[in-house]
Simulated scan of single mutants.
Amino acid sequence: MSSGSIRIYPLQPDDPGLTSMQACWSLSVHNNQYGLLRHVRCSHDDLFVLTAADDGNILSFYLRRPEELQRHQAQVPSPRAGVEAEALAPDIQDPAAYSIKTAKQKLEEDILRQKAELVVAGKQRRLAELQEKFQQVLMDNQNLPEHVRLTPEELQLDPVFNELA
């Protein structure tokens, strides 16, 4: 099928007219855009069904024998009737809509931006703390007796800092 799905029709043993092909199970297994089904084959012992499609995948499905189904009492849902009449999901035609890849990239960029903003906010907070501490040191220096007090030149660590500002 062109959508990459396979259909399974439960057949009855004594049904030469194939009247039991009214309903089927539909299983989407290959890529629905590039998964055009090319081959469906049963294994030599009829235990597996192999499918190959244009998406490059080869898939294998195990088929249980009727004895195993009865022994395990598998709960298989009823097949759906009228699946051929169902419309396929429409493609997104809006040129402004993001592709999944673009949306993922934008999300990753947003996460990186938020992390960077948190780092910047942390550094700004630390800088404000240091500036406050420096102002406190300046005030404590002014409160000292004049013979012990440091001059503004002595409080300057490196004159290059003034040149950079």
Rank of each mutant, 00 (worst) to 15 (best):
V137Q: 10
R7N: 04
R38E: 06
L164Y: 15
K133C: 08
E146W: 09
A87F: 06
V29P: 02
Q70A: 14
W25M: 00
Q12C: 09
A97N: 09
G82C: 07
A52G: 10
P90Q: 03
D14G: 07
P13W: 06
V120S: 02
A53G: 01
V120F: 04
S43W: 01
Q136M: 07
D110C: 08
P16S: 10
L11T: 04
R113F: 05
Q131T: 08
A97Y: 02
A53W: 00
P13L: 08
Q142Y: 15
F61S: 03
H30N: 00
R113I: 07
H39W: 06
S5W: 02
L69N: 14
E86N: 06
V40C: 07
A128F: 09
F134W: 12
P77C: 11
P16F: 06
T151E: 06
V76C: 01
M21D: 02
S26F: 01
Q135S: 11
K104N: 10
S2P: 13
I100D: 13
N162A: 11
D46A: 14
L127D: 05
V40W: 02
S43M: 04
L164M: 15
M139A: 12
A53R: 00
Q105Y: 08
D15A: 03
V137D: 15
L112S: 14
H147S: 09
A96K: 07
F61M: 12
I6G: 06
L18F: 10
H72Y: 14
R71T: 15
Q70G: 06
Y98E: 10
L59T: 03
A97K: 07
V137F: 11
L150H: 04
F134A: 13
L107A: 14
L130T: 02
E146P: 06
L69G: 06
I100W: 15
S60C: 15
Q73S: 13
A23V: 05
N162G: 15
L59R: 09
F61H: 09
L138N: 02
L11C: 05
T19C: 04
L127F: 09
M21N: 04
T19M: 09
V119A: 11
Q75M: 08
Q105H: 13
K104I: 12
S78A: 13
R64N: 15
S28Y: 04
L127E: 06
A85K: 09
L155V: 02
E154T: 04
L112E: 14
V83C: 07
D55R: 05
P152W: 03
G17F: 13
P77K: 06
A52M: 09
Q12W: 03
F134K: 11
Q105R: 15
N31A: 00
P152Y: 05
N141P: 01
I6D: 00
K104L: 14
A74G: 10
Q93D: 15
R80K: 14
D91C: 12
E163R: 14
Q131F: 10
L107R: 14
I100G: 11
L59S: 07
M21C: 08
I111E: 13
A103Q: 10
E108G: 04
L36E: 08
R38L: 05
Q142E: 08
V137M: 12
Q135I: 05
I111N: 10
T51A: 05
R113W: 08
N32I: 05
V119C: 06
Q136H: 15
A89H: 14
P95D: 05
H44R: 13
V40G: 01
R149A: 00
E117D: 08
Q124A: 11
P66I: 03
P16G: 06
L50K: 03
